[in-house]
């Protein structure tokens, strides 16, 4: 993996990183990926043997969890920018 690849991944991750960090990450990723690549040796087992691990969805009724508005102030107060009962962001278009 080279520096350019790391910068591209950082862009996908929406993280600003320096060229030096990208360079050093590229070397670290080489050794980490080399190590975790051991999983490729694991022989494929047919999924039918592993039925007990099938995931299932957990559903619930779409009810109101709590009285309307009781958390509004607490949650909006955590927003970096606020206007009335809205979170304020920069113009997109």
């Amino acid at each position: 993996m080279d520096k350019e690849k790391v910068l591209e991944l950082a862009k996908l991750s929406r993280i600003s990183i320096s060229d030096e960090e990208a360079e050093s990450l590229s070397h670290e990723f080489e050794s980490i990926l080399n190590y975790v690549s051991e999983v490729k040796e694991v022989s494929n087992s047919p999924r039918k043997d592993l039925g007990e691990f099938e995931t299932r969805n957990v559903m619930r009724e779409d009810n109101a969890g709590h009285e309307s508005g009781i958390y509004t102030e607490k949650i909006l107060n955590e927003a970096p920018a606020r206007q009335d009962n809205f979170i304020k962001v920069k113009k997109i278009l």
């Binding site: 991750s13 993280i15 600003s16 990183i17 670290e28």
Partner: peptide, 17 residues
């Protein structure tokens, strides 16, 4: 995200990506 996350967190997010 660049300033708020520390080095190890950045490393794992990028590796996960």
């Amino acid at each position: 995200r660049g300033a708020g996350f520390g080095q190890e967190v950045r490393r794992r997010i990028i590796l996960g990506t």
